[in-house]
Amino acid sequence: MANKEENKFEQAKGNVKETVGNATDNKDLENEGKADKTSGKINEKVDEAADKVKDFTDKVKDKFNKDK
């Protein structure tokens, strides 16, 4: 998984590609930019979900270890 900065960079890179593609009427570049932005957003959400799962499992482990 990518880190937060990589996800934000992917989104920013996509935004630039999309803007340049739109300004130059280059649909391929515009679509590539949209794909990059979407990829960055999806990776960001996956990382957030993974963090929540890790936090939950850590809490369960802590609770289990306290009950010993």
Rank of each mutant, 00 (worst) to 15 (best):
M1G: 13
A2Q: 15
N3D: 14
N3P: 04
N3A: 06
K4I: 10
K4A: 09
K4L: 11
K4G: 01
E5W: 02
E5A: 08
E6P: 00
E6I: 02
F9I: 08
F9Y: 09
F9L: 11
Q11G: 06
A12W: 13
A12C: 04
K13G: 00
K13I: 01
G14K: 04
G14P: 05
G14W: 09
G14I: 03
N15F: 13
N15E: 15
V16A: 10
V16W: 08
K17V: 00
K17D: 13
K17R: 07
K17Q: 12
E18D: 11
T19A: 14
V20K: 06
V20A: 10
V20W: 04
G21I: 02
G21Y: 00
N22I: 00
N22Q: 10
N22G: 04
A23Y: 10
T24Q: 11
T24H: 07
T24M: 15
T24G: 12
D25W: 01
D25E: 14
N26E: 06
N26S: 05
N26V: 01
N26G: 03
N26Q: 02
K27E: 09
K27I: 08
D28I: 12
L29R: 08
L29C: 01
L29K: 10
L29W: 06
L29A: 08
E30K: 14
E30F: 04
E30W: 06
N31V: 02
N31D: 09
N31M: 08
E32I: 05
E32Y: 09
G33N: 03
G33R: 05
K34S: 07
K34F: 03
K34V: 04
K34G: 04
K34P: 00
A35Q: 07
D36V: 00
D36W: 08
K37W: 03
K37T: 07
K37Y: 08
T38L: 13
S39E: 13
S39R: 13
S39C: 02
G40V: 01
K41C: 03
K41W: 09
I42W: 05
I42F: 08
N43Y: 04
N43C: 04
N43F: 03
N43K: 09
N43T: 05
N43E: 15
N43P: 02
N43H: 07
E44P: 03
E44T: 05
K45Q: 15
K45V: 10
K45G: 04
V46H: 10
V46D: 08
V46W: 10
D47W: 06
D47N: 15
A49R: 10
A50M: 13
A50E: 14
A50F: 11
A50W: 10
A50D: 14
D51Q: 14
D51I: 04
K52A: 06
V53S: 09
K54L: 12
D55N: 08
F56W: 03
T57I: 13
D58C: 00
D58V: 01
K59G: 01
K59H: 03
K59V: 02
V60Q: 08
K61S: 07
K61L: 07
D62H: 03
K63N: 09
F64A: 15
F64Q: 14
N65G: 00
N65A: 12
N65F: 09
K66Y: 09
D67W: 15
K68M: 15
K68Y: 13
